[in-house]
């Protein structure tokens, strides 16, 4: 399972990086989103998969899945959400102000 997940993570990173390298705001933000998914899956995969019960205490002599990566991912999801939301609004506002969604056209002011 971990091997398959590693391959899947590789695909997500490839797609994420490819989208990051494009010119369009939307694609770049979608790329960061996909990269984030890849990263979350990477964290949980590194903790080991399907090793026991869900981490909710039921009594003695039960083996649980590692809870620590889950806590880390939960934090990461929320932070990623906050950053993505901010980027979205930023992209929206810059399109409104600057009239383009092409990142190559954002070249600053001539006399800078």
């Amino acid at each position: 399972m971990e091997t398959l997940m590693a391959l899947l993570i590789g695909v997500l990173f490839t797609v994420g990086v490819f989208l990051l390298l494009s010119k369009n705001f939307l694609k770049i933000i979608l790329g960061t989103s996909i990269l984030a998914h890849g990263t979350h899956l990477l964290i949980i995969t590194m903790g080991g998969l399907k090793k026991g019960m869900p981490p909710i205490v039921r009594g003695e002599n039960v083996s649980y899945t590692d809870p620590l990566p889950q806590a880390l991912i939960l934090t990461a999801i929320v932070i990623n959400f906050a950053v993505t939301a901010f980027f979205l609004v930023l992209a929206y506002r810059s399109y409104q102000e600057l009239g383009t969604d092409n990142i190559d056209k954002l070249r600053g002011i001539a006399d800078e």
Binding site: G10, T14, G16, V17, M46
Partner: peptide, 12 residues
């Protein structure tokens, strides 16, 4: 991007 993806897979 393929390079990055392959490298991440290998690292994982």
């Amino acid at each position: 991007s393929l390079g990055v993806g392959v490298l991440v897979t290998l690292l994982a």
